[in-house]
Design a protein around this nucleic acid. Structure first.
Length: 804
RNA sequence: GCGGGCGUGGCGGAAUUGGCAGACGCGCUAGACUUAGGAUCUAGUGUCAUUGACGUGGGGGUUCAAGUCCCUUCGCCCGCACCA
């Protein structure tokens, strides 16, 4: 039979249209089948368009989604747009064009690019975080958080980006720089809306035990939450009625505390400003500190700096010694209580500080050599010079001192978390308005739910207001309103929400995207949740992934959702690098555009290479040559149409075919796409060697290949006279008994070195195998004149003859 | 410093978890077909050596057997960090 040339662009367009027309990949809400919910992180539709990194995650879960459909699941594989954010706003400012226009244009471009690659997304469920019908529910969730006391406004030191003129969440600061613009972040005091994610620290930690996240992600989240057990201890200020409270993980070393250190932002400085003789010096130090980011302040090899507070002293509660108080930038107001007791003998940082400032170093835990360095072992050390604690091991000393402090009302056991509350305000235009009204009599008043969504007002200027205020502050008509509670004149909050808001719950909206009465209908949520498999980048582990788990747990607590965790399984893909092995970026000039690949090699070859290029979870450089190789393979698969002979699987292909079904099926599940594809390549090589292929063998091959290369396989299926769509046909099953070979070739070693191979029946016993091995010509040469010490036979694997 | 990971041909990577190292692909070499080849097909391709030896960053160890386990060392990547 002769077939036309493989015209990929025609074939791909044709099937993409058919799939769309027949709504082949739309999820059904009939609830009559087992469901499977696959999720990829919805893209931020940037002006630069899609890059070859996006399709890696998309294709991986497209394969899973397509396989699940063929396994007869009701599959939800949605797509949407995380469209609020700074780049769009900055573009809008630079070009004086409304961000919504830019957003729409970018979304259309992204959608076209994605559609050309043939992902089986349910486009009927698209969501867009900037759509008022969507952010109505983002605002609704915020109001619920507010109602439940999880949103509060606080005057705090925040990370401030002088370039973007916005406050940033701690989690958004990367290496002391603004994550978006890479400019240095400074500290600045500002009233901000905060979300109490810290209230959920323990739940977020505990929840990790019950879900199937790759270990790297769990570890990273645990570290970020940073639970530590310790104690808070009160140090009195001499001659004052004031207690300076510290947090310590080593209360056992209390007798070794020879000074204290407080953060430059600590309120005690204002409290005792008239008592501190060198207050001018202290204030100057505070001003210098304010310019630094936490990262700079806490850098390990940094020279210790600080100023002693002259005129006030603290009293160690266990021995009543008066000790000096220092202010130093290495103590952060945002962790613990903003003050520490310094134990230079047993803490490395305190040791360095004490050396620099010539402070006494007392050994209170024996076992190390504090002449040389701090002894920080918290397991084996034994307490000395510590009164009631002498002779105790560290863990016992901790218990005893905590009891002692509790009895004396001078402290207590506490658990501290590294995690900080989420700074939720942005002084930007392109975000969800915060639906609150400030009334002089009633305070902060939530907008009634029936007034949602509170939409963004049209403005001409998107530039931030003076002093970093939101552009919304300039829209007087919009800002001035009446109090929903008392009806008196009041003003709206002008800050907007961060980009993380819309992305914290988008997977819920996919479940019921057009519902105007609820975030999503309860029965739909019950059916679809949790997300069965969520794949995304490692860079979102501590930001998006943690935030959305927090929101979900809150929604669970107030009865909106019925699953305690949003995502049952989380995997992560490695980054795709440029051909030169460096990170792909415009400035490096090594960006590869997927459109070019689709044009030149077709979507199927492109998808296939994305999966074939290497281990899915590892970073990998792009190679356009590699795409070519995949295209060649698809050409070979296509040409098999000329070599069809016979209907059913031929005996000599049976084991190979069943082994392929097994290997490909299992490898897809384990995200070992590269070896799954290699298996199919080998199979095709074998078929070429045999020159013909039966129809059943061919159908099996294209069915297994379909999730990776859906267009070409759909076309071949159609040419073979297949009914309906291959994409909705049944996944092949393998017969375990047919995966075994009747005969096997195994290696024969002498003293661990390969000396020959033998072919044995699968059921051969050890004696027979030994005999065959010893009979090998080459083996004989190596055992001649030597004594056989023993013969090791590993069934189906290897024979090793040990001689002397 | 702590936590996680990586190191295998010219390149991307395989290796049933202790059992024939280098599957599969790229690239390269030779040949066939062709007016032509950046198409296709066939054969070859770890290194050195004409029987064999050596080979998974280096060194040591356990074992009949090590890319895989243990010790040690070097290099690289990622995350977190004066976190008290």
């Amino acid at each position: 039979m002769s077939v036309p040339e493989y015209n990929y662009s025609e074939i791909e367009k044709k099937w993409q249209k058919i799939w769309a027309d027949e709504k082949a990949f739309c999820a059904s809400d009939s609830f009559d089948k087992p469901k499977y919910y696959c999720l990829i992180e919805f893209p931020y539709p940037s002006g630069a368009g899609l890059h070859v990194g996006h399709p890696r995650s998309n294709t991986a879960l497209d394969i899973i989604s397509r396989k699940r459909r063929m396994e007869r699941y009701n599959v939800l594989y949605p797509i949407g747009w995380d469209a609020f954010g700074l780049p769009t706003e900055n573009y809008a400012i630079d070009n004086n064009i409304h961000p919504s226009i830019v957003t729409e244009k970018n979304i259309n471009h992204f959608r076209e690019q994605l559609q050309r690659i043939g992902f089986s997304f349910d486009y009927s469920r698209e969501v867009n975080t900037t759509d008022p019908k969507y952010y109505k529910w983002t605002q609704w969730i915020f109001l619920k958080l507010f109602e439940n006391g999880l949103a509060y406004k606080d005057k705090i030191n925040i990370n401030y980006c002088p370039s973007c003129k916005v406050g940033l969440a701690n989690e958004e600061v990367v290496d002391g720089e603004c994550e978006r613009c890479h400019n240095k972040v400074v500290r600045r005091t500002k009233e901000q809306w905060m979300l109490k994610i810290t209230d959920y620290a323990q739940k977020l930690l505990d929840g990790l035990d019950d879900i199937d996240f790759i270990e790297r992600v769990k570890i990273q989240q645990r570290n970020w939450i940073g639970r530590s057990e310790g104690a808070e201890v009160d140090f009195a200020i001499a001659n004052k009625d004031y207690k300076l409270r510290v947090f310590t993980t080593r209360p056992d070393t209390l007798f070794g505390a020879t000074y204290m250190v407080i953060s430059p932002e600590h309120p005690i400085l204002d409290e005792f400003s008239s008592d501190i003789k060198n207050i001018d010096e202290v204030i100057k130090y505070r001003e210098i500190t304010a310019l630094k980011s936490d990262m700079e302040r806490t850098e390990l090899n940094k020279d210790k700096s600080g100023v002693e507070l002259k005129g006030i002293k603290a009293i160690n509660p266990v021995n009543d010694h008066e000790i000096p108080i220092f202010v130093s930038d290495y103590v952060l107001m945002s962790y613990g209580t903003g003050a520490i007791m310094a134990v230079p003998g047993h803490d490395t940082r305190d040791y360095e500080f004490a050396k620099k400032f010539n402070l006494p170093i007392i050994e209170v835990v024996s076992g190390g050599n504090i002449e040389e360095e701090a002894y920080t072992d918290s397991e084996n050390g034994v307490l000395i010079n510590s009164g009631l604690l002498n002779g105790l091991k560290v863990p016992d000393a901790k218990k005893k001192i905590i009891q002692f402090l509790t009895d004396k009302n001078a402290g207590e056991k506490t658990i501290n978390y590294k995690l900080r509350d989420w700074v939720f305000s942005r002084q930007r235009y392109w975000g969800e308005p915060i639906p609150l009204v400030k009334c002089d009599t009633c305070g902060w008043v939530p907008l009634p739910y029936n007034q949602l969504p509170l939409t963004l007002p049209e403005v001409d200027e998107f530039k931030p207001g003076e002093g970093g205020e939101s552009p919304l502050a300039n829209v007087t008509d919009w800002v001035n309103t009446t109090c929903p509670k008392c009806g008196k004149p009041a003003t709206r909050e002008t800050d907007t929400m961060p980009q993380w808001a819309g992305s914290s719950w988008y997977f819920l909206r996919y479940i019921d995207p057009h519902n105007d009465d609820e975030l999503a209908a309860k029965e739909n949520l019950n059916y679809w949740l949790p997300v069965d498999w969520y794949n995304g980048g490692m860079e979102h582990t501590t930001l998006h992934l943690l935030y959305s788990r927090f929101w979900h747990k809150f929604l669970y607590d107030i009865g909106v959702v019925t699953s305690p965790e949003p995502y049952q399984k989380r995997t992560s893909h490695g980054m795709i690098l440029g051909e030169n092995g460096e990170k792909m970026s415009k400035s490096r000039g090594n960006v590869v555009n997927p459109d070019d690949m689709v044009d030149e090699y077709g979507a199927d070859a492109f998808r296939m290479y994305e999966m074939f290029m290497g281990a899915f979870d590892q970073p990998i450089p792009w190679s356009t040559h590699g795409v070519k190789g995949c295209k060649r393979f698809l050409d070979r698969v296509w040409r098999l149409q000329e070599s069809i002979e016979g209907e059913e699987i031929r005996p000599d292909m049976e084991s190979l075919t069943h082994k392929m079904i097994k290997k490909v099926s299992q490898d897809y599940e384990a995200m070992k796409y590269n070896t799954a594809i290699a298996t199919m390549m080998s199979y095709v090589n074998d078929v070429y060697a045999k020159e013909t292929i039966s129809k059943r063998e061919y159908l099996t091959l294209i069915t297994l290949l379909n999730p990776v290369a859906p267009h070409i396989t759909e076309e071949i299926y159609h040419n073979l006279g297949g009914e309906g769509l291959l994409s909705l046909s049944e996944w092949p099953k393998w017969d375990e008994s047919k995966c075994e070979d009747a005969v096997k070739e195994i290696a024969v070693q002498v003293n661990g070195k390969l000396r020959g191979t033998i072919v044995i029946p699968a059921d051969a016993d050890e004696k027979a195998i030994e005999g065959l091995a010893l009979d090998q010509e080459n083996v004989k040469n190596y055992i001649e004149g030597k004594t056989i010490v023993k013969i090791i036979v590993i069934k189906g694997r290897i024979v090793n003859i040990v001689v002397k």
